[in-house]
Design a protein around this nucleic acid. Structure first.
Length: 942
DNA sequence: CGGTTCACG
DNA sequence: GACGTACGTGAACCGT
């Protein structure tokens, strides 16, 4: 940052005033460690303080320094406003003993620890700052407290020790929208929830800054409040003028505290004092002692050890995962695997597998995408350590003359099929795979319909959710303690990588047989856990049941019309070129419009547009909501940039990219659905992602015209309406909402009527829109700030909507609390069908993390149950269609929508059937509703 | 490879 | 006395 250079220099007359009380709270909440000293006293914040002080002294060479603390509780602000700081939480128990220790630490550094009855630390800092300036000294305030920004002036800077960053007037402006001398006025209007400073209701920092900049000062504003145009704002100011004045007295720091002037006592001492060493040793801060190169003769004490974090809720991951299942098994490293290249051995293995009743299988191929892949080999494992590999498509090493090596000893594919097909299709033999959805497609490609199957990836997913990943390599390390041979080790990397058909047979044997072996061993550990942990139903009824269904959807793919895409790409390309040159012209020079960094510089630095905000990395944000505000003011370049962005997205992500995803063999696009990726149980789609094809804008929606049905067919789209809201009504048992769904009333209008207290027939479109946003907010785990942003209103107003909603629908409030409790207790929530959704950080000290986790705890049961229901419907669909004699093929799932390709003659019957299956599959205490539409393409099917 | 932005439910 | 904001995804692009 530019100001850092100027501010980064300490002068030899400079006084460092450290906000000790502020630091201790921030350190306590920010530092993850749960440290105790040898006496068992928590010292996380103390260590943080010591580290901060040593760093400060070493880096800044502060010539004068003092640490300031709050004294006791009482001060004049409570007399002015008894509610001052009334909303503070109790000081955490493990923080209390650290206040005294930090004062001790300060003294051990040889630094004065200053406090004064009746004043807050901030007042003393203000006082010393004034006195120092009067004596011509410069001041650095060490604090993360924004309230101190009012003190910024010439010769005064603030150092934020948490962010290790200097602050100047620019930072005050960024935070409060005004120069430092007006910060108090803004705070008086906006109030401060953390100190319970009232301010003027309905006015936040942005509005306050705008008003103060316009009227010059708070007094001037209050005097002329009657002139304000906006009626709401005018009345709020007139009515709450006194509150604003009280707020000012609370916020304004008192820089005339009766303190002695004792700057000479603040002269910094040498760090190498016996007192400091003794203190550090006493606290067990050995690392600090050695870092500072200090020596001590005190008896050595153990270094601080992290206290046990959190509550143990069950057996440790390690013992639980490893179980006893591997005892007595052959260690994987000692296995000798079998290469099968004669028919007798193959038949022998097939017989053994049938006798065992289960076999782990795995396919090796030339490509990760089944639709692009050729089969290279098949591996199988029957008992741990007993595994074999059957090469069928190996081509031998690459010949310099380009010819294939024909001397690879492998069985003809048709012979292998003849032996394996009866086994793989035998209902009495369980086939175990890892991500067997892939292998099912490869086998389908050679006419084998593998059934029944188990999948270790899905077992792991159901049992442990997102506690860890579910790739085979990861599970092997975690649960078997075995490092698998890596694909790159056998196939090479980069440009030297070969496809599996070129891998040396001996290496291929080790790699492929090990995969089957590991899969089998994982199965022996995971399958028993299913019943022990009561996860049988989620696995059997939902996950396992959809594997063949999804495999078939992927294999089928969807037809895409390239001429439509090419046409659109061309059209978008032309428009983009025109827009780009217009943007460059308006900017006065060429730049990369796609670069947020360059764009931010052009708009906010060069053109000086106001109303920008920064991203967390400190760059200008050029996100759409920021730009839309500017575009609304009629700023041409911003309008063009928004248009450019939209078209560029459509072109690069959809119209261009999709053409490359069309499989040359099938002429269709085959997405990959991930079954074990999401926390809530949803599917996800990739390569390409067909779950985010545009629909919300007319221009984007046209891309759906390229998704078409085969000749003689139509695309059928059936989607659930408002599943998650219905589930909220059912799970929270809200009688009024459930009845509304039974009566098929407009749910958003009903909400509006209840929340805004108007009769149902008088709900305006505007009220309905707001109520709809509230309903969405409920599903997402509402926050006033988020709702306000959505509605473009003040957070205070949004909070009022939420309060009314939760008062009217008290059951929702109870439901939210119950889900948060469940997450706090278990670290996960369960859906109606029993799926675990992991919720991390629910007990975090950091409020932001905790709030995030609480919203997840509210949302996950709704999103997750909806996902379960959709999966159940999908699992039932093939059978239902078959029984009805219909030949529709399921192509896509988009969370609450299913897309089918249907013969024209069967469309009405199929639509009715799919709708019926979707509506009847769940046994939930609220009716579900699905709506069907069809047409020649996906745009008209809606 | 992380950050930003934006497409969907 | 602060955190950074609505939930869940995947892809393209920039810039280090």
């Amino acid at each position: 940052m530019a100001q850092a250079n100027a501010q980064n220099v300490t002068d030899n007359n400079e006084i460092f005033l450290v906000d000790g009380s502020g630091y201790i709270f921030r350190a306590y909440y920010a530092l993850p460690q749960n440290l105790t000293n040898p006496h068992g006293v928590p010292v996380g914040a103390v260590l943080g303080f010591v580290n901060m002080m040593t760093k400060l002294l070493a880096d800044m060479h502060a010539p004068f320094i003092a640490v300031i603390f709050d004294a006791a509780r009482q001060n004049f602000r409570y007399d002015i406003y008894p509610e001052y700081k009334a909303n503070r939480d109790e000081t955490p128990e493990d923080l209390k003993p650290q206040f005294g220790l930090i004062r001790e630490a300060t003294k051990a550094f040889g630094i004065p620890a200053l406090e004064m009855e009746g004043f807050e630390a901030d007042d003393l800092i203000a006082t010393y700052t004034r006195m120092a300036r009067e004596q011509g000294k410069t001041v650095t305030i060490v604090s993360s407290d924004k309230d101190l920004m009012q003190l910024l002036t010439d010769g005064v800077r603030i150092f934020d020790p948490m962010k290790a960053k200097f602050m100047g007037p620019e930072d005050a402006f960024e935070k409060f929208g005004v120069t430092p001398d007006k910060v108090v006025d803004v705070q008086s209007l906006a109030g401060d929830p953390s100190d319970n400073v009232p301010g003027v209701p309905g006015i936040g920092i942005k509005t306050a800054a705008q008003l103060i900049n316009e009227y010059g000062s708070l007094d001037e504003l209050l005097a002329r409040a009657g002139d304000i145009k906006q009626p709401k704002r005018r009345e709020a100011l007139i009515e709450n003028a006194e509150k604003a004045r009280i707020s000012r007295r609370l916020v304004q720091l008192d820089d005339h505290a009766p303190v002695p002037v004792a700057f000479e006592d603040m002269r910094a001492r040498d760090l190498h004092s016996p007192t400091l060493v003794a203190f550090l040793a006493e606290q067990g801060f050995k690392s600090v002692i050695s870092r500072l190169g200090l020596k001590h003769d005190a008896p050595s004490s153990p270094d601080s050890i992290p206290a046990k974090a959190g509550i143990q809720t069950g057996p440790s991951m390690d013992s639980r995962l490893r179980g006893n299942a591997t005892k007595g098994d052959t260690p994987i490293s000692e296995n000798v695997y079998t290469l099968i290249n004669d028919i007798k051995t193959l038949q022998d293995w097939a017989d053994q597998a049938r006798a065992a009743g289960m076999v782990a299988v795995d396919t090796e191929t030339t490509n990760l995408t089944p639709a692009m892949a050729d089969l290279v080999g098949i591996s199988m494992a029957i008992t741990p350590g007993q595994a074999a590999y059957i090469p069928v498509g190996h081509k031998g090493q690459v010949d310099l003359l380009g010819g294939g090596d024909t001397t690879i000893p492998q069985l003809p594919l048709k012979d292998v099929i003849a032996v394996l097909k009866p086994l793989l299709e035998d209902e009495s033999v369980l086939k175990i795979g890892h991500n067997i959805k892939y292998d099912l497609q490869m086998f389908a490609g050679i006419g084998i319909n593998v059934t029944p199957v188990d999948d270790t990836m899905l077992l792991s997913y159901v049992l442990d959710g997102t506690e860890h990943g579910h790739g085979m390599d990861e599970l092997s390390t975690l649960m078997l303690g075995h490092e698998t041979i890596k694909y790159n080790d056998v196939a090479g990397t980069g440009k030297n990588q070969v496809t599996f058909d070129r891998v040396d047979i001996a290496k291929a044997l080790d790699y492929a047989a090990e995969d089957a072996d590991v899969t089998l061993r994982l199965h022996r550990i995971l399958k028993p856990r299913l019943a022990q942990e009561k996860m049988v139903s989620v696995y059997e009824d939902i996950e396992r049941a959809i594997v063949p269904v999804i495999a078939e959807m992927e294999r089928t793919g969807i037809k895409v019309d390239t001429t439509v895409l090419k046409q659109m790409s061309h059209e978008f390309g032309m428009k983009l070129a025109t827009l780009e040159s217009a943007i460059h012209k308006l900017a006065g020079h060429e730049f990369n419009v796609a670069s947020p960094k360059q764009l931010g510089v052009v708009l906010f630095d060069e053109m000086g547009l106001q109303g920008g905000s920064k991203t967390k990395t400190g760059d200008w944000s050029t996100a759409a909501d920021v730009l839309e505000d500017l575009a609304a003011q009629g700023i041409e370049i911003v309008e063009k940039v928004l248009e450019w962005r939209q078209l560029a997205k459509l072109k690069s992500t959809y119209t261009d990219a999709l053409q490359n995803d069309i499989n040359p063999k099938t002429g269709r696009v085959h997405t990959s659905f991930s079954l074990a990726g999401t926390n809530t149980g949803r599917l996800s789609s990739s390569d390409p992602n067909l779950q985010n094809i545009p629909i919300r804008t007319d221009e984007g929606r046209r891309i759906r015209e390229a998704f078409i049905a085969e000749d003689g067919h139509v695309l059928l789209s059936v989607d659930y309406s408002q599943v998650e809201l219905r589930l909220a009504a059912a799970l929270a048992d809200v009688k009024a909402l459930k009845q509304a769904f039974i009566d098929k009333v407009d749910i958003h209008a009903l909400t509006a009527s209840q929340v805004f207290g108007v009769p149902l027939d008088q709900v305006t479109p505007e009220l309905r829109r707001a109520a709809k946003a509230v309903n969405f907010g409920i599903i997402y785990g509402i926050s006033g700030w988020g709702l306000a942003k959505q509605l473009g209103c003040e957070p205070g107003e949004a909070n009022e909507f939420i309060r009314k909603y939760l008062t009217r629908f008290r059951e929702i409030q109870d439901y939210m609390e119950a889900k948060k409790d469940e997450a706090r207790k278990n670290g996960f929530i369960k859906t109606v069908y029993g799926r675990k959704c992991v919720i991390n950080n629910i007990n975090a000290k950091n409020g932001a993390w905790r709030a995030f986790a609480e919203r997840q705890a509210i949302n996950a049961p709704l999103q997750g149950t909806a996902a379960d229901i959709m999966k159940l419907a999908m699992a039932r669909m093939p059978h239902a269609l078959k029984q009805a004699g219909l030949s529709a093929r399921m192509l896509l799932q988009v969370h609450d929508e299913l897309v089918f390709e249907v013969p024209e003659a069967e469309i009405e019957q199929t639509a009715a059937l799919v709708k019926h299956v979707m509506e009847s599959v769940a046994h939930i205490d609220v009716p579900l509703s699905a709506e069907a539409g069809w047409g020649k393409n996906w745009a008209t099917a809606h």
